[in-house]
Design a protein around this nucleic acid. Structure first.
Length: 587
RNA sequence: CGGGAUGUAGCGCAGUCUGGUAGCGCGCUUGGUUCGGGACCAAGAGGCCGUGGGUUCAAAUCCCACCAUCCCGACCA
């Protein structure tokens, strides 16, 4: 491919809108261009990388026994009403109407459509399991799109859905996907980590997220360096290290605390440590209002509370609602006398004689005690893990790392098959709902994540497997006849060997070409010039290393092929290793 | 949606306070000289100054409204 015939506008400076390095580099290298907030054009260079990610995904999905389908972007409201998500899904679901005033939406995900596809067609246990996937554009009307294709409204995603006859089958499908994902991300040249994840509004019981480790990540992971436990902060469980207190229980004492609402204020006013003050937070959920208690120096983790009570949705109650539910204003809530279920963080259960709100303006209680003064509906780990916490499995101290979520695997169970009435006949002739799983990979985001992980001040450093081209062929002066001939000839030799070559045939100074070679991150650069040709040679340089070596012209193509294959083989070995450790993790 | 900021040539920016011919760098075009880390000389092209309204003899500049974009927060298979 000759650059002069290619559409690849590169820039010296990145548009001011780009914050993230991957975003800046993608814009500068001419991979993408913004159309509107969270909506991007993919240019030829960017599309080549995106397609490489997609093809890796496709190969591995096929290898794992899944079958590719292609589902519509526009989906009818009826299906979403059937699953109950027409109302449950928030404003991210872009609802539209057609000319007949018929309601529909742009698909943010495809559970409804896929269930509709198979129900009635899959009727027998003999046909199971089935795993169908697609690589599609999704649309989610994000409140705040940002970071280029890392968090855009329209984005590329592979989504797969498995249908099994029972839990055991579903567990097997899940494991297969888990292993396939490990291979996929390893093949993309990524350093990643599967972590236990909260299941969020998609529901289900069990989930892993595949995280690419990068500072720019929006998620925080708690990783145990000793036993390998890793979890999203939303889910991470810390070991309780404190001993239960055994103090005597003096009587409950109501005390005037005028205007003291926050933990800080109350602690200062009463001269108690925040560890001895317990916050009572009121939530609204589909299960009705609930209260949750954590120590004053801790932060409640809503997703833990949500999964504990099995709520479909959960949010902080409004001040008005708090007054209704507790009979007291915001800032003075406490467990004593509360009529709603009270969920207790496990740390709180160890305390004696703590301070709580009195559900009355300007009053708190001293010497509040569990059992004597109130009952807990349940005691569990409800707080957000913090640096310094210890792994609940092995007791080593957690390390916190930032990660980009590039994939997630879910066990859905009957969440969609049941309401949408998708069933088959089991061996006993009995009707059963499909046990489902769903498995997503953000393909466009994966491209950005690869750049986040592989760049230097000069530009991108692509892993060979997702590089848009493998060789950047740079003639020093393409107008010089001997150079031109050598470059053209080498280009066709390389292409004949199946290599992907970008020939920089522009009438620009060498500096421009080197800068663009670095910026676009193509793994192997070959320079052809009068100086090298005087030695019957061309110069090889890997983007990932500083060394330059002269290679005889006649051996150049074969040598390039060898280098590319070495890199491919190395990644193949990494994929093998990733598969092996994934198999261990999931068994 | 709350808080903050910005909209001037393809990109990066100045000009706005203090109203009076719309500028700079990069990029682009033409010619020439160059050719190992974003070359040099010369001549050019390119702008509803985000949109609409108002004030004024006169508005990129002052006032009002709207729109868009970015950042922080809430949100998020």
């Amino acid at each position: 491919m000759k650059i002069s015939r290619y559409y690849m506008p590169t820039f010296r400076e990145a548009p001011a809108e780009a914050e993230l390095i991957s975003h800046q580099l993608m814009l500068r290298a001419g991979m993408i261009k913004k159309v509107a907030a969270g909506i991007y054009n993919w240019l030829p260079l960017g599309l080549r990388s995106l397609r490489k990610v997609e093809n890796i995904v496709r190969e591995e999905m096929n290898r794992a026994g899944a079958h590719e389908v292609f589902l519509p972007v526009v989906q009818p409201a009826e299906l979403w009403k059937e699953s109950g998500r027409w109302d449950a899904y928030g404003k991210e679901l872009l609802r539209i109407k057609d000319r007949h005033e018929h309601a529909g939406c742009l698909g943010p995900t495809h559970e409804e459509v896929i269930v509709d596809l198979v129900r009635g067609q899959l009727r027998s246990w003999r046909q199971l399991p089935v795993n169908l996937y697609q690589i599609q554009e999704k649309f989610r009307d994000e409140i705040r799109p940002r970071f280029g294709v890392m968090r855009s409204r329209e984005f590329g995603m592979k989504d797969a859905y498995s249908f099994d006859a029972d839990e055991a089958g579903a567990a097997k499908s899940y494991s297969q996907m888990y292993v396939a994902y490990a291979r996929i991300f390893a093949r993309c040249g990524l350093e990643f980590r599967p972590v236990e994840a909260a299941t969020g509004q998609i529901g289900g019981k069990f989930s892993h997220e595949f995280m690419v480790l990068a500072e720019a990540g929006e998620d925080t992971l708690a990783v145990c360096p000793k036993c390998g436990y890793a979890a999203n902060l939303e889910k991470a469980e810390a070991k309780v290290t404190q001993q239960p207190e055994t103090d005597a229980e003096p009587p409950l004492q109501k005390i005037n605390t005028p205007g003291q609402k926050t933990v800080e204020e109350v602690c200062a006013f009463l001269k108690v440590a925040p560890q001895k003050l317990v916050k009572t937070l009121i939530f609204e959920s589909d299960q009705g209002p609930v209260a949750a208690m954590v120590r004053g120096d801790r932060e409640l983790n809503p997703s833990k509370l949500q999964s504990l009570i099995g709520a479909a949705w959960l949010e902080m109650a409004t001040p008005e609602r708090i007054s209704e539910v507790t009979q007291g204003p915001l800032g003075f809530s406490g467990p004593v006398g509360l009529k709603i279920p009270v969920y207790l963080d496990q740390e709180v259960a160890l305390l004696k004689n703590f301070v709580t709100g009195a559900n009355e303006k300007d009053f708190h209680y001293l010497n509040t005690n569990l059992a004597r003064d109130f009952k807990a509906a349940q005691i569990a780990d409800l707080r957000v893990a913090v640096p310094g916490d210890l792994c609940h499995r092995c007791g080593a101290e957690f390390k916190f790392q930032k990660g980009i979520e590039v994939g997630q695997v879910f066990k859905l169970g009957l969440k969609y098959s049941q309401p949408m009435n998708a069933a088959f006949l089991d061996q006993g002739g009995k009707e059963q709902f499909f046990v489902m799983g769903c498995y997503g990979i953000g393909t466009s985001r994966t491209v950005a994540a690869a750049i986040e992980q592989h760049h230097d001040p000069n530009g991108i450093i692509w892993p060979i497997t997702v590089a848009p081209f493998q060789v950047y062929l740079a003639p020093i002066n393409y107008k010089e006849e001997r150079t031109k001939q050598a470059a053209d000839r080498l280009e066709s030799e390389l292409e004949a060997l199946g290599l992907e070559v970008l020939l920089d045939d522009r009438d620009d100074s060498p500096g421009v070409k080197f800068k663009d070679a670095d910026l676009t991150g193509i793994p192997l650069r070959i320079v052809v010039g009068e100086k090298t040709l005087a030695k019957e040679s061309v110069e090889f340089k890997l983007r990932s290393a500083p060394d330059k070596t002269l290679v005889p012209v006649g051996e150049a193509a074969a040598k390039a092929k060898t280098l590319v294959e070495e890199q491919l083989n190395q990644i193949a070995r990494q994929a093998e290793a990733a598969e092996q450790s994934a198999l261990k993790e999931i068994s």
